[in-house]
Design a protein around this nucleic acid. Sequence first.
DNA 1: ATTCTTCCCTACATAATCGGTAGGAAAACT
DNA 2: AGTTTTCCTACCGATTATGTAGGGAAGAAT
Lengths: 152, 152
Amino acid sequence: MRISARADYAVRALLELAAAGDEGPIKAESIATAQGIPHKFLEGILTDLRRGRLVVSRRGGSGGYRLAASADTITIADVIRVVDGPLVSVRGARPPELSYTGPAQALLPLWIALRANVRKILDEVTLADVATNRLPSLVHTLAEDPEAWTNP
Amino acid sequence: MRISARADYAVRALLELAAAGDEGPIKAESIATAQGIPHKFLEGILTDLRRGRLVVSRRGGSGGYRLAASADTITIADVIRVVDGPLVSVRGARPPELSYTGPAQALLPLWIALRANVRKILDEVTLADVATNRLPSLVHTLAEDPEAWTNP
DNA sequence: ATTCTTCCCTACATAATCGGTAGGAAAACT
DNA sequence: AGTTTTCCTACCGATTATGTAGGGAAGAAT
């Protein structure tokens, strides 16, 4: 269960755009230095985000990137799906495509529940929530518990 | 966010052992055919499980594998941690090791909340729960929602 | 029109991980 | 002794992850 560098970088890049608001397009280079992301690597990610219609671009002198929609309509799950595919997969397949036999039969509803609980976080949090540091109350509550910060 | 084949296989193998109860050790070959897992690949996984003290083994004629503890004390999270390392990681690091700047600062509590919600499922469900098809009520409730079964 | 900037595209590189195989050595049971 | 089964080491091909390099195409500014 890992969040890839691509996904992490993608979210951070979009947060820079969200924070910029309507101040005209932001250059890839500017995002890269602001967030410490390798510039050429970021370019590839921005291409994915453009193809996934999360971002629009403009070339030339005063070009750059801008969010394709309002920051409060783009969720973190949207971003991860665009750059990394399905949110949760088991052995490369999405949970509903699995089938188990014998004592493992109840594994399927377990993976479904796991995915549902992941969605509860990532589908509900928008770029605007993170950029303005106003996380939904469920997320806020979970992150408040000191237990949640300890490694097992 | 993927569950690897190793983790899936490991859980299924342990479920076979959980279902067997005290009927003496079960052979790797028998688990492999019961769950359709490549036998030599499974051997490697069982070695990890033994080193992680989730399983004990016996060699020779009537040898095989047995759970190292009662099935209701081993959680799914225990299994995944043994065969795949940390439950949730971001760019290869565990959430508390991360640090973000500027508009990305609230990403850290977000990943923490995500991990907490994953733990809520995987830390609470034991091998016995799955093997006897008696999932905890939280899990059961989540898996009941038809929405949880749809792909986006 | 020319020049400059910036995105855009293709290709390469390298390392790690994933999923799986092969062959035999060591131990335990019959 | 002989059989069975785990245990150990090594390997293997394919894919994925994380970048890098170089230049072409489009647009803006002058």
